[in-house]
Nucleic acid binder design. Structure first.
Length: 301
DNA sequence: TACACGTGGTT
DNA sequence: TAACCAAGTGT
């Protein structure tokens, strides 16, 4: 009997416990409704990238009312899409979603693809989102690995305090091994794993007393050790280019007509940084310059 | 692999 | 209050 081996052996996840918990504790989110379209699921997944549910909710509703199908969004101007994106953050997501809608409308008969390969080929859709759409919109069996899932698996299966740096291939294989064989059950299992990470197995102060997996949790078994991996990089914001780009874009979202550069210059006092940011926004296609030299959101003039 | 990319609520 | 955190993607 070698204690070290016993402790380090990865544990599994009790799917029955997890799914029972999900049945009674899952949040009632509109993109989980049985009658929500795959397009609705896709829009939610893009909006939810690095963005809290509470902030997504009203914008998602507005988008689905306004653009119920990919072709509807595809027919809209980029500027109007960026305006409707509002302050969700990372506005390049809005541009990519618009581009994805154009591809879906023109090459997929206005229907969101149901296989991971085709989804991955769409702009703004990566390893996580492709599998999330396949699983949640079409009930497919695919490893859906987001930050919540990585944290839950790190703790419950590997007994670590938290997940280390992401590694797509390793993480996918890791979660694939935990998935139930049955397809619809696997899809529901994926949603449940994410929900557990979002509600119970949270980053700070996990609520272990209410966790359906405590009795089989490797992290509990190991005595809840602290996270020992490499420190996560701290996200600065104040004074960064990201901050300045946000300020510039905010001016343009709130005007209908293109503005003189002077209107943009007032948002930031450092000319060098200000110009560099405006330039990068032009390169990213988030801002467009009119023939007469003014600046506005793209695709409207 | 590491870093840039918005925004705002929570601790 | 500063730091942390939130359903990632593209380069």
């Amino acid at each position: 009997m070698i204690a070290g081996l016993v402790e380090s052996a990865p544990m599994s996840i009790d799917a029955d416990c997890l799914l029972d918990w999900f049945d009674e504790s899952a949040r009632d989110l509109p993109w989980r409704d049985a009658d929500c379209s795959p397009w609705g699921v896709l829009v939610s997944e893009i909006m939810l990238q690095q963005t809290p549910v509470a902030r997504v909710l009203p914008v998602w509703q507005e988008w689905l009312d306004r653009w119920p199908r990919p072709s509807a969004l595809a027919g809209e101007s980029q500027g109007e899409v960026l305006r409707a994106w509002g302050k969700l953050g990372y506005p390049r997501r809005a541009l990519r979603l618009h581009a994805a809608a154009c591809v879906i409308a023109s090459e997929h008969h206005d229907r969101v693809p149901d296989d991971v390969e085709a989804l991955l080929a769409l702009p703004g859709i990566g390893a996580y989102t492709a599998r999330a759409v396949a699983a949640f919109a079409y009930g497919k069996r695919a490893p859906v690995v987001d930050t919540n899932v990585r944290r839950v698996v790190a703790r419950a299966v590997h007994g670590a305090g938290d997940a280390g740096p992401a590694s797509i291939s390793r993480d996918l294989a890791d979660v694939e091994a935990l998935l139930p064989a049955d397809e619809p059950r696997a899809a529901r299992f994926s949603a449940a794993l994410m929900e557990l990470g979002a509600l119970i197995c949270v980053a700070r102060s996990p609520k272990c007393t209410g966790c359906p997996l405590v009795s089989g949790c490797a992290w509990q078994r190991a005595g809840r050790p602290e996270y020992t991996g490499p420190a996560k990089p701290v996200q600065k914001y104040g004074g960064t280019d990201r901050h300045v780009r946000g300020l510039l874009l905010d001016v343009l979202r709130n005007t209908t007509e293109p503005v003189e550069k002077a209107r943009l210059d007032v948002v930031w006092s450092k000319p060098g940084q200000r110009d560099r940011c405006l330039d990068s926004l032009l390169v990213d296609g988030l801002v467009e310059q009119t023939p007469d030299g003014r600046f506005g959101l793209p695709g409207e003039h």
